[in-house]
Structure formats: structure tokens, C-alpha cells
Design a protein around this nucleic acid. Structure first.
Lengths: 260, 260
DNA sequence: ACCTGAACACCGTTCAAGT
DNA sequence: ACCTGAACACCGTTCAAGT
């Protein structure tokens, strides 16, 4: 399971931005953000630092390129394992727009699970340059599904933003368990870890943390992906209740100006 | 507006973890994550690196402490400006649980707007140690409001997690505009910036980005906080539709095992 | 056009020594 | 118990020189 140093890699051909980014992703996967250094990179690519600087401007650009490459692959492929929740019917079977949203969301979720450094990197990247390639890529892949959701066009931006926000927040936070699972000693298992967190939460100060203590037990045996999808469904239900033509939502008087 | 080097600060008294964390936050606010170095810290505190290492273990711990301090202040105070959306009625006026959720969410939103480094730092912190102080702090402050939402206890964990995920994702992404507003040249204004992004999105490849191009115009004149609250309301509407006792949601057949 | 690799400025961290 | 500050290993980046 551990990716060993692959000396079998062809090292004869010329350097390229692509190969550099690929190596960067491998280093990030293997040892996290601190694992990506120009020293390690030059060693793996068998060159000097100057060669790398010929293809990328600096480390920030390299990190951005690595993030973009992983995100691009994630939204292109969709979720790694099972896609829609409906039973398998063969490829090309019609899926509901809701299932399509879930599939895209799971694709990003799984990407963060496979590349734990992605969570913090996405936050950094998005707040550094929203006009970069990463934001439109994610926005587009989710937005295309929103269009099929029968939501009025004036709400497209708001609704898509809400979904993107949820996905990024949830996927980021759930990088937790992926990272933990990797770091766990071979003896301990996932259930044991959840138990540890649950116990830690149960021991919080009762005056300050009454709610967290009360739900601490619900952590045990909970499934990341399942809860992630439950959250998506919550947002989808909210979209239906709020933006569906034939339905009113009685909860909020809408004091602010509506879109457009 | 720019925080100048405050030499007026009393520098006579002893160092403390508190003072170090405070200085760290100031450095982070002034120059971002790269602005926090032990060199800058020792200069500002007029000591040597050894003195700082007596109080904090290393830079990671210092970053975690700074993050926790800012989050603690944010969830304690609530939003910076206006709290509930209802017209002011004096302190202690009854607020709906929905408004309470919005207030807590806005508190975190505003904290990230004031401390742009917080977004990436939260992602890093949460994925590094979910059992740390930051996660329970956020979870508790939102969860206490969820309890008032009339949601069955078996759903507390799922519902609170969904809200937390949304808030972190949205607030993180919206650090964008705060950072931009700061970095903008004095001549350009916010509207001009939004116009730039909007235009950039409109120039994306039509084949690859049809949806993003279609909504690019909706970026112009959109308000961060307003959209953030719209997203919160979407989740709240979803909660009402899904978890409220007297209501069914027809959308999803719930194929997975329910909680508990 | 693309690559080499020594050199530079800067960083986090340590530790013997002081009070 | 708390602080000093020189020293160390390591990092991102540059640049004159090669092909």
C-alpha cells in the first residue's frame, strides 16, 4: 500500500511541466505538504533546481498546479467507487439530477480522502485567486447538475454556490478520518479511533460543552461518506423547498432583496 | 487602517503564552501566514527564540493556538455587526433558533473576513487533529442552536455536522473577497473587482464552461454576506423539510440505514 | 531552448550558558 | 523558572555557466 520510491520510472526523457506536477503530487501524497521540497523534487526527477524553475515560476505556482491537476481529475471521473445510489443498471442508465449532484460531490470527497493535503490547499488556493482555474472547474461541474434540478435561472448562482460551499467544507473536514486512518498504528482500527474521539468529547467540560457531550456517542460507528451524502441531501431538500416553482417555504419572510 | 508597529505596547513585563499568541495573530493579520516567523516574533516581543520556545513547543502549536484563540473569540461574541435579521428591539429580545444559527454562522464568517489566514488554517487544523479544541468549539456553538430547532435527538449529530460543514466551506471561500478588498489598489473598488471576475468567467471556453459562463453575470453586484445567509437558509429549509416531525420529504427514499 | 549546480538569504529549532 | 543568542541543518530561489 505504501508507495515506494519507484526507480523503474523512465528517467531518460526530457523534463516537462507535466512530469514535475506529477512528481509533486506524489510527494504530497507520500509525506504531506512538508514533503514537497525542491530538494526532494530534484532528487526524484534527477535534475537540479534550475531545471524545475525553467518550467514553473515558484513553489506557489507548483502547489496551485498540483491542486488543479487533482481537482480536474476528480471532477472529470466522478466518485471513485459507487456512483449513484440507485442499484446498478449498467452504464448510460438515466440518473436523477440529485444523483448527479451526489456523484460530483462524492468525486471531490474521494479526491480529498486520497489526497489529504488537498483540503488546506483548496482553501489557500481559493482565497488566493478565485479567478484561477480551480474555482470555475468545481463551480461548473456542480452547476451543470443544478441546471437539471428545475431551479429558476435567477437562483442558479446562489444555489450552486451553496452546494459548492457545502462540498468544500464537508470534504475538507472529512479529510480528518482519511489522514487518521493512514496514521493509525496497525493494531488500532477505525472503530477504535472513533471510540477515542467519542470518549474525548464525552470528557469535555459539562458546563461549556453540553451539546457536544450529548452527541459524542453518535460518533461511534458513523460513516463518513454516509454522513456526507446526508448533508448533501439536506441541501438538496432545502433547494426543493425553497426554489421549486410549485412550493413555498414558510420559514423565512425573505427580508432581503431577492436575486435580480 | 493599517496596524502600525505599536511601540507604545508595554514591553516591561514578562513573556507569556498569551502575549506570544496575541503577537502571532497580529503578525498573521498583517502579512498572512508567511508573515509569522520566529524572527519577526522575537523582534516584536524583544526577546530571543529560546524565550518563545519556553512557552510554545513549536510553530505548529503556535499556529494552532492562534487559530483557537480567534475561533474562541468569534463564537463567543457572535457576528461583528448586525446579529439577527429582525429589526433591533434591544438586548435580550427573543430570537428564533433560526436567527441564532445565523448569528453564530455570521460570527465565524466575519472572523474569517477579518483574519483571511484563518480559512486555510482551519482546514489544516481540523484535518490534523479533530480531537483538538477547535472542532468541539465550533460544533458546540452551532449544536446548541440546533437543539432549539425541534429536531429529533437522533439527528442532532448529522444536522449539526451539515451546518458546520456549510459554514466552514462558505466562510473559507468567501475569505476571497475580504483578501481581495484589502489587496485592491486604492483606485479600484469592490464593484470593479467583481466586474473583473465576472468578465474573466464570461471569457471561459464555451464548450467546457457553459454553466459558469451563463451565471457569470450574476456575480456582479452580489453581496457576500447576503449570499452566505441565503445558503444558511437553504440548509435550514432542508432541515425543516427533512427532520421536522410533522413533515415528510418526498425526494429521497432513504435507502441507507438511518442514525441509531 | 533547456539544463547544471554552486551560492545566497532566510527559516525553524537547539542548547550551553546565563540570571 | 525563565531567558539569551550563537550555531546548525534545511529551505526556496538565483544566476553564471554550460550544452
Amino acid at each position: 500500500m505504501a508507495t515506494r520510491t519507484r526507480r523503474s520510472q523512465r528517467r531518460t526523457d526530457a523534463l516537462s511541466r507535466e512530469r514535475i506536477v506529477e512528481a509533486a503530487v506524489e510527494l504530497l501524497d507520500a509525506a504531506g505538504e512538508s514533503g514537497l521540497t525542491f530538494r526532494a523534487l530534484t532528487e526524484r526527477l534527477a535534475t537540479g533546481p534550475g531545471a524545475i524553475y525553467w518550467h514553473v515560476a515558484n513553489k506557489d505556482e507548483l502547489l496551485a498546479a498540483a491542486t488543479d491537476a487533482v481537482v480536474a481529475a476528480a471532477v472529470a471521473v466522478g466518485p471513485a467507487v459507487e456512483a449513484p445510489r440507485t442499484p446498478s443498471q449498467g452504464a448510460g442508465a438515466p440518473v436523477s439530477p440529485q444523483d448527479a449532484v451526489r456523484a460530483v460531490a462524492l468525486g471531490l470527497f474521494d479526491a480529498i480522502a486520497r489526497h489529504p493535503w488537498l483540503a488546506a490547499q483548496l482553501a489557500t488556493q481559493l482565497s488566493r485567486s478565485p479567478w484561477g482555474t480551480v474555482t470555475p472547474r468545481i463551480f461548473e461541474s456542480i452547476g451543470q447538475q443544478v441546471r437539471a434540478l428545475d431551479v429558476p435561472e435567477s437562483s442558479w448562482f446562489t444555489v450552486t454556490s451553496a452546494l459548492v460551499h457545502y462540498v468544500l467544507g464537508a470534504a475538507g473536514q472529512n479529510a480528518v478520518n482519511a489522514a487518521i486512518g493512514r496514521a493509525l498504528p496497525p493494531g488500532a482500527d477505525r472503530a477504535g479511533f472513533l471510540d477515542t474521539v467519542s470518549t474525548a468529547w464525552e470528557e469535555l467540560d459539562p458546563g461549556e460543552y453540553p451539546f457536544t457531550r450529548a452527541v459524542a456517542d453518535q460518533i461511534r460507528g458513523h460513516d463518513d461518506r454516509e454522513q456526507f451524502l446526508d448533508g448533501i441531501d439536506l441541501v438538496l431538500a432545502g433547494i426543493t423547498a425553497t426554489h421549486h416553482p410549485r412550493q413555498e417555504h414558510p420559514d423565512r419572510p425573505d427580508p432581503a432583496r431577492g436575486p435580480e
